[in-house]
Write a protein that binds this DNA or RNA. Structure first.
Lengths: 266, 266
DNA sequence: CTTTTTGTGATTAACTGAGTGAAATTTTGG
DNA sequence: CCAAAATTTCACTCAGTTAATCACAAAAAG
């Protein structure tokens, strides 16, 4: 609020640079140089609130990272790389770090994951919930039942469903308004569309997913205490896995009944 | 050396997670959970050296970020998302932060950059040098002279040269062994290849670039004090811009003389 | 009902990093 | 060539953050 990116590009940039691992002085110095293009320690100190005597350390840090070039004269002059080059620089570093991380994590990952579970797990945040949905959809073998409200049927979910459909998975999709039905029929040919099962519209409804009758997820849109309802963080979900998981059992019963499926509950 | 990623995926992962903004406890906890798949505070504390009573705070942090799901029971159980999902999570966050950063920086960037310069700038590190080379090549209008040693003629540089060639820029390329010449002729049709100008091979040679007779760069491969010669960091360059820049004047003189160009030195 | 385990909160210690100032070096002007 | 001013480097203090420990409340297990 106090630092809206568009309001004050300075603080926004400084904030991000710090989070990318620069010290406060280095971040401030770089931003100052960015607007100056070129300048001495004095110039930098003038527009950046960095003590002049500390500008040199900051420059060292930046020079090491390749973000600033230095002119060996007295007074020394400093030159910041372009915004575009900066982006490329960090992009590369992040790519690298991501590879290291995921490589290491994969080595640690145990063989078996998320088979039979007793309890029910909770997830916070829309993107985390979406991730979980996609994960489950990707693991589907036979059948997917997915009920959702308009806004939450995003492209990535549709993609995952489409891929599953091609794999031969039966897909039942509920809660979709007629506007979007055309698109769905195009992207997911085999999908069977059904209407919302119950009083779905006036509640803070989210999504409802069942995969192979053994993995289920339910989400709601919370009018959080400090979070506006439009905020992506305002979605919370619970999920459970395994034939005998309580959440799974309940949802399977409901769906089997309502959709009039052939399979009887176990 | 003490923490080779492949030697110890644990510390490598923890290191990266911390750099991505997690606290030490959160990082350790996540890594522990990653190898456990699922576990209680006690379990986590056992394998991670995190005090048991602090595991809960760490989990809070991770749950906020969507990296861990929680089971509301007693004892609470925790579940870490898969390595793949973790990567996706951070990838998305980094993408976003990069956009914010480069957006803010572009707003700050002054109109004019790197026109006439008096001094000579220094750059450290191979990637930074390469960036500068590409930047200059992209700004070329008339003529590029580029002399380099084999290993430093990477794909991205070739791409940039190719683009410039299509723009109608004359390209002279030196120091390329006959092996690579075929490839060059294919990628950069108009390029004129010439042999190394002088005793180029036994020196710690790097590259030598001149653009439009007004922008030049010279690099050497330093056998750094603490840096092995193969290390990408071991390249250092100086560059200067402007018709009257001293480095530019010297190099232009040499090239004009050696290549027998029509243009006389100013 | 007692004992053990689990979860929450408060408190202390250690450390990193921002900020300050003095000393050494270099430049500039006489 | 010398003196004054500025530039640069270095050492130190202080504050804020975070790791770590401890004490206590709540809940399960026996």
């Amino acid at each position: 609020m106090s630092t809206d990116p568009s309001d004050d590009p300075r603080s926004a940039a400084i904030e991000q640079l710090k989070r990318f691992g620069l010290s406060t002085y280095a971040a401030r110095t770089f931003v100052a140089l960015q607007s100056l293009g070129t300048g001495t320690a004095k110039d930098v100190s003038g527009v950046s609130d960095v003590p002049r005597t500390r500008v040199y350390d900051a420059i060292d840090e930046l020079h090491e990272r390749g973000l600033v070039d230095v002119q060996q004269s007295s007074p020394k002059e400093f030159w910041a790389i372009s915004a575009e080059t900066t982006r490329g620089m960090f992009e590369q570093e992040m790519d690298h770090r991501l590879s290291v991380l995921s490589g290491a994590l994969e080595e640690l990952e145990p063989a078996h994951r998320s088979e039979e579970q007793q309890g029910v797990w909770t997830v916070n945040g829309r993107s985390a919930v979406t991730d979980r949905v996609i994960e489950f959809v990707q693991e589907a073998d036979d059948e997917i039942v997915y009920m959702t409200v308009e806004g939450l049927l995003t492209d990535d979910v549709i993609d995952a469903l489409g891929t599953a459909a091609q794999r031969g998975v039966t897909i039942s999709l509920g809660g979709v308004s007629s506007d979007v039905q055309d698109r769905i029929e195009e992207d997911i040919p085999g999908a069977e569309l059904f209407d919302s099962l119950w009083v779905w519209s006036d509640t803070p409804a989210g999504r409802l997913l069942m995969v192979d009758g053994a993995q289920t997820l339910v989400s709601v849109l919370v009018n959080g205490d400090d979070v506006p309802p439009t905020d992506p963080r305002s979605e919370t979900a619970i999920w459970g896995a395994g034939e005998t998981n309580s959440l799974v059992v309940v949802l399977r019963a409901i769906f089997t009944w309502k959709l009039g499926d052939a399979e009887p509950p176990t």
